Amino acid sequence: MLTFADTKMTMPGLTPMVYVGKNLFDKPTDEEVYCFQDAVSVVRFGILGESEDVYIQPFKKNDLGSSIITLERAVIIMQETNERYIKEGKPKLTKAKGKWKTIHTS
């Protein structure tokens, strides 16, 4: 899973995730929901393991490819991010003060 800590997208966060199934939650929906589990808890507890440390993240189809990316795409994005980081003068992270905004990449 890819996130950024800043609006200029120079400080990425990657969380390795494992696909564990579709529509795993009891909520009825017309749209398919793809579920991913963090890779660390897969190794520690197994797929859909019973622990409060298991993190399952649902994504709609249109989120696949922006928030959920392949390793190959992650390498490309990290290269692009490094170029932005250098271009922006290697910025430091500052407190957001409640100004959160979701940014999707393609």
Rank of each mutant, 00 (worst) to 15 (best):
Y55D: 15
P91R: 11
I56Y: 09
Q57W: 11
K61F: 05
M78F: 10
S51H: 06
G89A: 08
G65I: 03
Q79T: 08
P91Q: 11
Q57F: 08
V54W: 09
V75P: 03
F59W: 03
K87F: 05
A74E: 10
N62L: 07
K90F: 13
D53L: 15
G49A: 03
D53K: 15
N82H: 10
L64M: 11
E52R: 11
R84M: 05
N82Q: 07
F59L: 04
T81K: 09
D53A: 15
I56R: 04
G65L: 01
I76D: 09
R84H: 07
K60V: 07
G89C: 06
L71Q: 14
D63P: 00
S67M: 11
G49L: 00
S51F: 06
I68K: 06
M78H: 07
L48F: 08
V75H: 06
K60Q: 11
E88S: 04
I76M: 11
I86E: 15
I68H: 03
E80S: 04
G89E: 10
I68M: 12
K60L: 04
D53N: 15
E83V: 12
N82S: 01
A74D: 05
K61H: 12
V75C: 08
T70Y: 09
L93I: 12
I69N: 00
Y85M: 10
E50L: 12
S66P: 03
S66W: 04
A74G: 02
R73Y: 05
Y55V: 14
K61S: 13
Q79Y: 09
G65P: 00
T81G: 10
M78S: 15
I68E: 05
K60I: 06
R73D: 10
T81P: 13
S67V: 10
N62F: 09
M78T: 11
T81S: 13
I69P: 02
L64C: 02
L64F: 09
R73L: 04
E72A: 10
R84F: 01
E80P: 00
E83K: 08
P91N: 11
M78N: 06
I77S: 12
K60M: 04
R73A: 03
E50P: 00
V75K: 14
R84N: 06
F59G: 00
P91T: 08
D63A: 13
L71C: 08
I86N: 04
P58K: 02
E80F: 01
E80C: 03
S51N: 07
E83D: 12
K60E: 05
I77L: 15
D63S: 15
I86L: 15
T70K: 01
E50N: 12
E83Q: 12
G89Y: 04
Q57I: 15
E52A: 13
N62S: 12
K87N: 12
K60F: 07
G65E: 01
E72S: 06
Y55P: 00
K61T: 11
I69T: 00
S67H: 10
I68F: 03
A74C: 05
L48T: 02
L48E: 03
R73E: 04
I76Y: 06
